[in-house]
Design a protein around this nucleic acid. Structure first.
Length: 185
DNA sequence: CTTTTGATCGTCT
DNA sequence: GACGATCAAAAGC
């Protein structure tokens, strides 16, 4: 998997890949691409800040941020150093360490364990203090995997550039959120 | 079933 | 001091 490309190209390739953090494995089923200066919806739109600095760094690290004061959302940083670019992991299927996930997520249906960016972050047990974590095999890894039928559409939950079709998901996967229900193709 | 609202806080203006 | 790359529960129909 070549992460040294802009997020919009890496995003669809990440579908079907398995991200493992501290023994919990998640098969990615839904992602969104965010790119620096050219993308008004990106955190890096107005340049580097202490929070988004990791987005400007080299590929293969995790960018984790606190959303709405409650949820931790997880991105995989891509593109070459100096170009802010990241893929938000919106949903996945838990394929390893389900017991550890249930401690944090409780008694919810299997398909919902990591459905939605906040839930996925919770399932992995990541918080903003983990931002910058390298996918180097120490605590975390990504391994590419087979993807089925891929579809794309507008990103969810943003107010700017809401028409850019940089959301990608696997058709037929129960964990895909698409929250809130609107664009059904 | 659809729409609204409360929770909760770091970040940037 | 306002506002989110959100979620689940409650209220409205």
């Amino acid at each position: 998997m070549d992460l040294d490309r802009p997020a919009r190209f890496v995003a669809p390739d990440l579908l079907g890949a398995v991200l493992t953090v501290d023994g919990v494995g998640i098969r990615v089923t839904e992602v969104e691409a965010y790119e620096g200066e050219a993308d008004p919806a990106s955190h890096a739109w107005r340049g580097m800040t202490p929070r988004n600095a990791v987005m400007f760094g080299k590929a293969g690290r995790l960018y984790v941020y606190l959303s709405y004061g409650i949820h931790s959302c997880v991105n995989i940083v891509c593109d070459v150093e100096g170009r802010a670019s990241a893929v938000l992991l919106r949903a996945g299927e838990v394929v390893a360490g389900e017991e550890a996930v249930r401690v944090r997520r409780g008694r919810v249906p299997y398909a919902r364990l990591a459905s939605g960016p906040g839930n996925l972050g919770s399932a992995l047990g990541l918080t903003a203090t983990d931002s910058g974590l390298a996918l180097d095999g120490v605590r975390a890894t990504v391994v590419a995997g087979p993807a089925g039928h891929i579809m794309s559409g507008p990103r969810v939950g943003i107010s700017r550039a809401a028409d850019t079709p940089w959301r990608f998901w696997l058709v037929g996967e129960p964990s895909v959120s698409g929250y809130p229900r609107s664009a059904r193709a």
